[in-house]
Simulated assay, not measured.
Amino acid sequence: MVGREYGRVYAWDRVNAPMIRHWCEIMGINNPLYTDAAFARDQGYADVVAPPGMLQVWCMGGLDQESFPEGSSTENNFEVLKVIEPYGYPAVVAVNSDLYFDRQIVAGERLYFTSKLDSVSEEKTTPLGTGFFVTVLMSYFVQAENDGVDEPIGRQLFRVFKFKPAQRPQAQNTEKKAEAKSVKRPLPGVSDDTRFFWEGCEAGKLLIQRCQDCKTLRHPPGPVCSKCHSFAWDTVESTGKGQIYSFVVMHYPEVPPFEYPNPIGLIELDEGVRLIAGLIGVDKDELAIGQRVQVEFQRFDDQQTLPQFRPVTE
């Protein structure tokens, strides 16, 4: 089956400004090339430009993964997974998605992609289990107007692992537990730009870098203000209050000395900046976007103090 090619899958809609705006809002991107048509035309484009990372978005089927516009191929470009599965490989996990761009995509263009089964690896064994890496290559095109020639505008290499899950031991033996406890947390890299933050943590203070000229707060810390480009900065102490902007619960692989499940939050402080930190005192099944949290400082291995966040009621 390797080398098999699959037909066109069309986009439901032309590249359009509303979807670009939604994407930029969600991703926190502020670039006038993507949202200001006049600015984009001054740069030589016919309309606003779509962020390159949206390449895959335009031809997605939506919540119903099999819902594609009329004329689209009904073939499954990952059909080889159904061939592999009956031989005892029930699980699948996405491994990586690599995007390649030939040029900018402009509002008003209509896209489609074709697919090819690029490769199926030999059987491999990983910590997740034993199975096969399956790689599909999608080629994206802009449909030509007035019977012109369709133009290639990018490619996507998408790889999954079709596998038989490894049998994980139910409990570690005493020796392995002792070994895990002896492992210390890795220390952060400290520079002249970040030293104030870690020293603040040691003192039980959550410090935020502030531009002395335009007063913009920024995190992670850096040598220059991204807004006014000033090199002058000082710090302000945060109240440590905020909300969960996003989160993930790490289950596997288990890396000593961290405890699992391991909830990690992207915290939006009331001052407006965001930082990544561990979540404590939480039920992983009750975590929610917008949940209020308060900072707590915890000492680890007698070598570093880290800010962590605990849910609080309003």
Rank of each mutant, 00 (worst) to 15 (best):
20 I>V: 12
276 I>A: 12
19 M>F: 14
218 R>I: 12
30 N>L: 07
114 T>W: 04
154 G>K: 02
59 C>Y: 02
276 I>F: 03
99 L>S: 09
279 L>W: 04
122 E>P: 00
275 L>V: 09
177 K>C: 12
94 A>C: 07
4 R>L: 01
154 G>W: 01
231 F>L: 13
82 K>R: 11
68 F>G: 04
40 A>I: 07
245 Y>D: 14
32 P>E: 06
39 F>P: 00
241 K>E: 14
168 R>H: 13
237 E>I: 12
157 L>A: 09
167 Q>M: 13
3 G>A: 06
128 L>E: 09
131 G>W: 10
202 E>H: 13
12 W>G: 11
298 Q>F: 06
161 F>K: 01
183 V>M: 10
217 L>Q: 06
71 G>C: 07
220 P>T: 08
27 M>T: 06
241 K>T: 13
131 G>H: 09
249 V>Q: 03
55 L>I: 12
258 F>P: 05
135 T>C: 12
203 A>G: 06
227 K>E: 13
114 T>M: 10
291 Q>N: 01
242 G>D: 08
10 Y>T: 08
200 G>C: 11
168 R>L: 15
185 R>A: 12
177 K>S: 12
290 G>T: 07
277 A>T: 09
194 T>F: 07
144 A>R: 05
122 E>Y: 11
221 P>T: 05
72 S>G: 10
311 P>S: 10
64 D>M: 11
179 E>K: 14
203 A>V: 05
66 E>V: 08
180 A>L: 01
198 W>C: 05
44 G>F: 11
120 V>C: 02
286 E>T: 10
301 D>F: 10
13 D>C: 07
239 T>E: 14
146 N>L: 09
22 H>W: 11
210 R>Y: 02
207 L>F: 08
214 C>L: 02
18 P>N: 11
191 S>Q: 06
98 D>V: 15
171 A>F: 08
97 S>L: 10
184 K>P: 01
167 Q>V: 15
149 V>L: 11
263 P>R: 00
138 M>I: 00
152 P>I: 02
110 R>M: 11
217 L>K: 01
95 V>M: 08
48 V>T: 04
139 S>Y: 05
8 R>D: 03
105 I>D: 00
48 V>R: 04
144 A>V: 03
254 E>K: 15
197 F>C: 03
237 E>A: 14
226 S>C: 10
113 F>T: 00
159 R>M: 12
45 Y>S: 08
20 I>E: 01
170 Q>P: 08
155 R>K: 15
147 D>L: 09
28 G>C: 07
314 E>P: 15
140 Y>E: 03
127 P>E: 13
75 E>S: 10
171 A>E: 14
103 R>A: 12
109 E>V: 10
176 K>C: 03
215 K>P: 00
148 G>M: 02
295 V>P: 01
35 T>G: 03
252 Y>N: 11
144 A>M: 08
248 V>W: 04
209 Q>T: 05
143 Q>I: 09
296 E>G: 00
246 S>L: 05
71 G>M: 06
150 D>K: 08
48 V>C: 09
117 L>G: 06
154 G>N: 05
167 Q>E: 14
232 A>T: 09
6 Y>R: 04
311 P>N: 07
187 L>A: 12
159 R>P: 01
71 G>E: 06
100 Y>E: 14
243 Q>D: 13
91 A>V: 01
281 G>F: 02
134 V>I: 15
17 A>V: 12
110 R>H: 14
230 S>P: 06
258 F>D: 09
93 V>C: 07
162 K>G: 04
